[in-house]
Design a protein around this nucleic acid. Structure first.
Lengths: 136, 136
DNA sequence: TTGATATTCAACCATATGATTGAATGTGCG
DNA sequence: CGCACATTCAATCATATGGTTGAATATCAA
């Protein structure tokens, strides 16, 4: 239950941007689709119902958060995941994840039908997802 | 570099709320202060410059995201961390953290003094944060 | 009951966000 | 050159967010 360390304002600003960027499902899906390959703006935009311009702005939000970079060659712009700021976010969240996970394990111990094997990183498929914990 | 799994709409909704909740520094600090102890709304509010009412609403945002719970006894309301939804967020982000961290390591291998340009305080300090960008 | 305390609710305001459409920029190519 | 293409910029709109102050609710205590 170690207390998280205090961060600088700068780190806080990064976390603000990163978490805000991650709070939108379109942007998360963009990141998902960029996992492992580079894509053009137009390719990224294609599956979405919103306009290309809207996607372009989502991409800019991700760029500002440092989560992706764009490399423009000619008139096309390739997007790829970038590494740095997510480490801050992952670091921050994982401090809590430890505590939360521990609490979660306790919870699971009381609710045996939930699979408690996700204490570690099989979490790709983590499936305690019948949450009725949030509204709306 | 395994592709992340598709999530349900419900999971997406949880992630929306959780990441949005985490995007505010006041709320993150509330969580930080709740790591290991329960606190009253008024105790939580005390170090902040904003009104008690504003803090109360931040707390409600965290409750809606499932990150904390409030237990009211009499006129006081104790807040404590809650476990479940953060597991989703941690799971989600960690899928990427692996990829990102690997990329980051590669980057660092090429640029041993990566951050001497502008960053100072730790290994992933990153500097595009003179930030003008979000509301607060 | 009266009054102080703890918290929430409500109304309001300023700003941010996400979407749209239309115009602008810039590049590739016939 | 002149036009199609890829992307961004700009204006606009509706809604969400975060802050304020003041009132309401509820509990404790004298």
């Amino acid at each position: 239950m170690s207390k998280p360390v205090k961060s600088t304002d700068r780190e806080q600003a990064v976390l603000n941007l990163v978490f805000a960027a991650l709070s939108d499902p379109v942007r998360r899906e963009i990141l998902t689709r960029l996992d492992g390959e580079e894509l053009l703006v137009s390719e990224l935009a294609q599956p979405f119902d919103i306009s290309l311009q809207a996607v372009s702005r989502h991409i800019q939000v991700l760029v500002r958060a440092g989560l992706i970079t764009q490399e423009r060659t000619g008139r096309i712009s390739r997007c790829r995941l970038d590494a740095e700021p997510i480490a801050s976010a992952a670091g921050w969240i994982n401090q809590y994840a430890k505590y939360w996970q521990q609490q979660f394990d306790t919870l699971v111990a009381f609710l045996p039908e939930l699979d408690n094997s996700n204490t570690e990183d099989d979490s790709h498929g983590h499936d305690h997802s019948e949450d009725e914990n949030q509204r709306d």
